[in-house]
Design a binder for these strands. Sequence first.
DNA 1: GCTGGCGTTGACGCCCGGGGGAAGGTTTAC
DNA 2: GTAAACCTTCCCCCGGGCGTCAACGCCAGC
Lengths: 135, 135
Amino acid sequence: MRIGELAERAGTTTRALRYYEQLGLLPARRAGNGYRAYDEGDLRLLREIRMLQDFGFGLEETRPFVECLRAGHPEGDSCPASLEVYRRKLAELDECVARLQDVRARVAGQFERARKARDELAATELPPLCELVKE
Amino acid sequence: MRIGELAERAGTTTRALRYYEQLGLLPARRAGNGYRAYDEGDLRLLREIRMLQDFGFGLEETRPFVECLRAGHPEGDSCPASLEVYRRKLAELDECVARLQDVRARVAGQFERARKARDELAATELPPLCELVKE
DNA sequence: GCTGGCGTTGACGCCCGGGGGAAGGTTTAC
DNA sequence: GTAAACCTTCCCCCGGGCGTCAACGCCAGC
């Protein structure tokens, strides 16, 4: 299988495949004419990469999964290194969520304070107007 | 006050101040010699900008706060436009947290599945060894 | 009158990953 | 024969928020 077919079957582009090869992530054998030659195993690897990408993994983070498959394991995450990447990613996500929630709390605090200040300002301005309306 | 002094008092750099002026965020009067001239009000504006930056606001998002102060209001968030930025930011943060938690849940699912698969694999391999140990 | 420090404008660099796009040349496929 | 697919190499880009020169002007102290 050549690069165009592989790209199409995996739903990506030839450009991306050349880039992965450049990273050493998905090296290709070469046919006599210099064309890249791929097999079904490469398709499997590529699908693993794409799936992890969809999860928000960086390309370097997919490497252990790819190497795990290439080593003959049934799944990309059958190896300790892959599980470790999962753990790191979970910790990273948790920390990111915690930071965002901290910022959220502080912004909400500012917002509440400002809203309260505005309401108090309104309370000192509106009542006279209301009384005017009553009269 | 000249640019260096203002930068130092606000804990930022002259480069940043020139950049803010370029954005029209913090315009400066000019002295006769062409030097930028700032006053205490500008320091107040700049501190507002820095505080919001620390909260993770982009420079454009600080604009309503700065204009609110420049309009004579006591706080940068005394104006409806500023409150609206707070609201947008809160919504943005909430959406970001939700997305991260969704990803986190999916990664955790993958992780659990992989860990379980590994444990089952271990269960089919280890017991015979244990029996060997018993004998 | 000279050195050094602060000021001015303008322009380019950079960081970060994940490629996009074009140029210029083979090879294959119909 | 010619169009499509492939090859390599190269530069570009996206965004924000500046950093970092370069080349020059202004001013205070000695």
